[in-house]
Design a protein around this nucleic acid. Structure first.
Lengths: 129, 129
DNA sequence: CCGGATCCGGGGCGATACTG
DNA sequence: CAGTATCGCCCCGGATCCGG
C-alpha cells in the first residue's frame, strides 16, 4: 500500500509547503483570526473589512473565496437588495486556528528578538563596510 | 517603554504577519526542519542541499542568510580551501520549531480535506457552468 | 452592499555564469 | 565548496471601473 505522507515532507507536494502557501498570503491569517473570534457567529463582509485595517475589498473577497474553496469557511448570501453576505469558519477552519494561534503567540513573544538580531546585523555590516 | 504588542495584531507591523512573511518563503520551513532534526549538531551547506530536493544553491544560500540575519541560525566557516560552511539553529530558532511542528502535524492530518474541498468546488463549478 | 474584470508594479524564485 | 550578480518569469496584491 502507499504509505501516508509522514515521511514525505520534502515531496514537491509537501503538505506543509502547500499549507504555508495558503496561510502565507497576506490577509488569510487575519481573516481566520477574526472569524475564529466571532465563531460560532457569522460575520458580514463589511464588518470583516472594518475589522481588518488596510485590506482592500478585492483582496478581502479573494481571500474569503479561497477559504471557502478550501473548505475552511462557508459563505451565506441573503438575496436582498442590496445583498448581505456572511461568512463563518467551518469545523476544519476552526481546527486550523489552533496551530495558527500558537504561531501568533510565538510571534508576539519573539519577533522583537528577530528585530533586534536584524538591527545588530545592520549595525555590524555598516561598521564593517 | 511602549507597551507590548498584545492587542496590535492588525497593526501594519503585526508580528504574526511579519513572521509569516519569513516562514512563508518557499524553503525556510524545510531548512528549519532539517536543522532542527540535526540539532544540536551542525549541518554543512552541501548536506542541507542534499537533504532538500529541488532547492537551488542560490535560494538555499539566501534562505540561510535570512535565518542568520534573523538570529534563528548561526553560520560557522572553516577557513580551509575549499571552505566548509556549517549551520545550526540558535535557541530562538529551535523555539520556532515548536509551533512550526504543530503546523506540520495539522497539514499532514488535514490537507487531504482541503484538497477534497477543492475537488468538490471544481466539480461543482464545472457542472454548474 | 458585494465582488468580478482589468491594468500595473514589485518581489520571490529559478537558471546561469562567475569569483575565491 | 560556497556565495554573488544578472536576467527573466510569474503571481500577489493594490487601484479603478463596472455589474448585480
Amino acid at each position: 500500500m502507499t504509505s501516508p505522507v509522514r515521511g514525505d515532507l520534502f515531496d514537491p507536494e509537501c503538505p506543509t509547503r502547500r499549507l504555508l502557501d495558503r496561510i502565507g498570503t497576506k490577509w488569510t491569517s487575519m481573516v481566520v483570526k477574526v472569524l475564529a473570534e466571532a465563531a460560532p457567529h457569522e460575520v458580514r463582509f463589511a464588518e470583516l473589512r472594518r475589522r481588518i485595517p488596510g485590506v482592500s475589498q478585492k483582496m478581502l473577497s479573494v481571500t474569503l473565496h479561497s477559504l471557502v474553496r478550501d473548505g475552511l469557511a462557508v459563505r451565506r448570501v441573503e438575496p436582498t437588495v442590496p445583498p448581505r453576505v456572511h461568512y463563518r469558519l467551518t469545523e476544519l477552519g476552526l481546527s486550523l486556528e489552533v496551530p495558527l494561534a500558537a504561531l501568533r503567540i510565538w510571534a508576539e513573544e519573539h519577533m522583537a528578538r528577530i528585530d533586534h538580531a536584524n538591527a545588530i546585523s545592520d549595525a555590524g555590516s555598516a561598521a564593517g563596510g
